[in-house]
Structure formats: structure tokens, C-alpha cells
């Protein structure tokens, strides 16, 4: 009996190692493939298809991209960088100010503030009215603010931040209050410095969302100068899509220059490059954020 169960246990462990290893490889494989193709020579890809190891390794693709579309890629990088930094800084300030206010138990209408935030998660007017007011009344069409303002308050992040602020003992504030500090001062010089890790966590979540956003560009922006990086990639890919589905007649497709396989994958790498580079350092903050959110539930 004892022997049998321990044998079964060993199989469980073996199965665990295999399952996890296979799934992890499935998650990593596409990225390795993408990197490999971006360093391969175009003719080898056309002949053999994608492969895990670069075929006739070369930097030609990257050289080609920077010679031919270097300016537009750099501009898109600039747009994305601006959106990410300005958006994240603004979002962090706005989010943590509201979260701080809601975390103060003495504030009589804090439940009202929490409710009007919460309600927007469960009910909305829908895409079209939102689009209408944004374009007709706020004038966001073809502006960089269209990709910043609508995403500046994420209610989930706000409640995550509030959870952290609520954990700070109110006695720390009371002492400052007696000394005559107002709540902004308390927020700025007590609550914020005590919340460095949560601020980094929430800030990184906002930054990732801004970096990866292309939906707002799709909806609001058709000026090429304002295309963020992800939307630049989207446009390259959707041209490819259109041709490979046979939607564009073969005669017309002759006049469209189909981006080569290696170019598509190289642009993909250029798009996720900074994330890949920063991933080892930022990963744990996301894990912390998810854990904190899960504990709240």
C-alpha cells in the first residue's frame, strides 16, 4: 500500500514537470520563432518557412527597416513613448488622489465616490455615444489626447490603490493633522512615500496598458503622424491579411508592396523589444498586484 501510493505520487510529480514544461515552452516558442525569423534571410524563409533557428542569419531586415521606414518607426516610437509617460504620470496622480480620498474613513461621501466609480464598471452607454461625445464635444479626433485621456482612470487600479492606502494606520495622519497639515500634504508626504511599491505596481500596469494600446488609435486616429507603435504594426499586418484572404484582387495586389515575412517579424520584435528587455525587472510587481487584488476578493 505504502509503496503503491508513493509510486503514484512520483507519477504525479513527473506529470507536473512535463505538463508545466510543455505549456511553458508553448508560451515561449512563438517569441523565439519571431526573433529567429527577424534575423533570417528573406529567401530562406520563402523557401523553408519559419524555423526556430535563424536561417542564413543576417541583420539585413533590420537594416532595411531603418533605411526605408526608420523615420516613421521612430516617430511611432515617439508617439508611444509620449502616450506612455504622460498617460502613466497623469493616471497615477489622478488615480491615487481619488483612492486616497476614498480610503479616508472620516470622509462622509466616500461611498458616493466609490459608487460612481464602481457603477462605470457594471453599466456603460456603449461605444457609439462615447465616441460621439469624444469626437463632437471634446474634439479628440486625430489628437494625441484621444489615446491618453480615456484610459487615464482605471477603476480596478483605483480600488487596488485604495486597498493599499486603507492599510496605512490613520494614526499616522492624525499626528500630521494636529500639526496643521492639510490632506493633500498628508497624501503627498505621508501616504505616497509609504506606498512606493503599490505605486510602482499600479504605475507599471498603466504603462503596460498605454504601451500596448492601439484600439484608441484605431477608433480616433487616421493621421499617420500620430500612429503609435502598436497601430503601426497593426496596419502592416492587416495589409498582409487582406492580401492573403484573397480580398484584394490579384491585379491590385501587384501594386501594393507586401511587407516581407522577415519585416513583419522584425517590426513585431521592435514593438515588444522594450517589454522583453524590462520583463525580468518588472514581472514581480505585476505578480504582487495580482496577488493583492486576489486577496481583496
Amino acid at each position: 500500500m505504502k509503496l503503491k501510493s508513493s509510486l503514484g505520487d512520483r507519477w504525479v510529480v513527473v506529470f507536473a514537470y512535463c505538463f508545466i514544461a510543455i505549456f511553458a515552452l508553448i508560451c515561449l516558442y512563438p517569441f523565439l520563432l519571431t526573433i529567429s525569423v527577424s534575423f533570417s534571410s528573406e529567401s530562406a524563409i520563402a523557401r523553408n518557412g519559419y524555423a526556430l533557428l535563424p536561417q542564413l542569419p543576417t541583420l539585413d531586415t533590420y537594416r532595411y527597416i531603418f533605411v526605408n521606414s526608420g523615420a516613421s518607426i521612430l516617430r511611432s516610437y515617439g508617439v508611444t513613448f509620449f502616450i506612455t509617460t504622460v498617460g502613466t504620470a497623469g493616471a497615477l496622480l489622478i488615480t491615487s488622489m481619488l483612492a486616497f480620498a476614498i480610503s479616508i474613513k472620516k470622509l462622509r461621501y466616500r461611498n458616493v465616490l466609490a459608487f460612481i466609480s464602481n457603477f462605470t464598471i457594471i453599466f456603460s452607454a456603449g461605444l457609439i455615444p462615447w465616441y460621439m461625445v469624444s469626437v463632437n464635444y471634446y474634439g479628440l479626433k486625430n489628437t494625441i489626447w484621444a489615446m491618453i485621456l480615456p484610459a487615464m482612470l482605471n477603476v480596478w487600479n483605483m480600488f487596488l490603490m485604495r486597498t493599499y492606502f486603507s492599510a496605512i494606520s490613520p494614526s499616522l495622519y492624525e499626528a500630521a493633522e494636529i500639526d496643521g497639515a492639510n490632506y493633500f500634504k498628508i497624501f503627498w508626504s505621508i501616504a505616497m512615500p509609504l506606498s512606493k511599491t503599490p505605486l510602482l505596481t499600479v504605475g507599471l500596469m498603466y504603462a503596460l496598458a498605454y504601451w500596448n494600446d492601439w484600439w484608441h488609435a484605431l477608433i480616433f486616429v487616421n493621421k499617420k503622424d500620430l500612429f503609435p507603435l502598436q497601430y503601426y504594426l497593426y496596419n502592416i499586418l492587416s495589409n498582409v491579411n487582406a492580401i492573403s484572404s484573397g480580398r484584394i484582387p490579384s491585379g491590385a495586389s501587384g501594386s501594393i508592396t507586401l511587407p516581407a515575412e522577415t519585416v513583419k517579424m522584425a517590426v513585431t520584435i521592435i514593438t515588444i523589444g522594450p517589454i522583453m528587455f524590462l520583463y525580468p525587472f518588472i514581472q514581480r510587481y505585476f505578480v504582487q498586484g495580482i496577488m493583492a487584488g486576489a486577496v481583496k476578493e
Binding site: 508545466i20 514544461a21 505549456f23 511553458a24 515552452l25 508560451c27 515561449l28 512563438p30 517569441f31 520563432l33 519571431t34 525569423v37 524563409i45 520563402a46 518557412g49 519559419y50 503596460l208 504601451w211 500596448n212 494600446d213 492601439w214 502598436q230 497601430y231 504594426l233 497593426y234 499586418l237 498582409v240 491579411n241 492573403s244 515575412e261 513583419k264 517579424m265 513585431t268 514593438t271 515588444i272 517589454i275 520583463y279 525580468p280 514581472q283 505585476f286 505578480v287
Partner: peptide, 30 residues
């Protein structure tokens, strides 16, 4: 393995689209 499995969360759907293309494109796909 945890790092490997968490990484796809960090990329946009456009990049997922590029990867899906890499797997399913008719001529060169895996």
C-alpha cells in the same frame, strides 16, 4: 517556467495577431 507562462500577458493583441499569422500563414506558417 512561471516567467515563461506569464509573458504572453504582457504583449498586445496585435502582437498576438502577428504570432498567429506566423503559425497559420499558408505558405510559411508552422
Amino acid at each position: 517556467t512561471q516567467s515563461m507562462m506569464f509573458f504572453p500577458y504582457f504583449i498586445s493583441w496585435v502582437v498576438v495577431g502577428a504570432i498567429v499569422y506566423g503559425v497559420f500563414s499558408t505558405d510559411v506558417g508552422v
